[in-house]
């Protein structure tokens, strides 16, 4: 179960990443953030973002043209 949820539906590159960064910066290490996005480009971008920032991408789930990314704050 996520500690925080960010709904970035309807937003296009780079807003989902920028909003994810902002949301994570307010959270403590080990907390879980769910990001909801409709931007297909964010599938690769969230992965790259986590890869570069050390945050852990726990899962990516696609459902009804929406993507839910579960990220653990590093």
């Amino acid at each position: 179960m996520a500690d925080e949820t960010l709904d970035a539906s309807g937003l296009n590159c780079p807003l989902p990443i920028l909003k994810t960064k902002k949301a994570l910066s307010k959270m403590d290490t080990g907390k879980i953030l769910d990001v909801i996005s409709t931007d297909a480009g964010s599938v690769k971008d969230i992965d790259a973002f986590c890869n570069q920032t050390g945050n852990k991408l726990i899962s990516t789930v696609e459902k009804d043209n929406k993507y839910v990314f579960t990220i653990e704050k590093a």
Binding site: C13, P14, L18, F49
Partner: peptide, 11 residues
């Protein structure tokens, strides 16, 4: 602005 803001987001 897109690359600058994303760059900061990526530390």
């Amino acid at each position: 602005f897109i690359l600058a803001s994303t760059g900061v987001a990526m530390d």
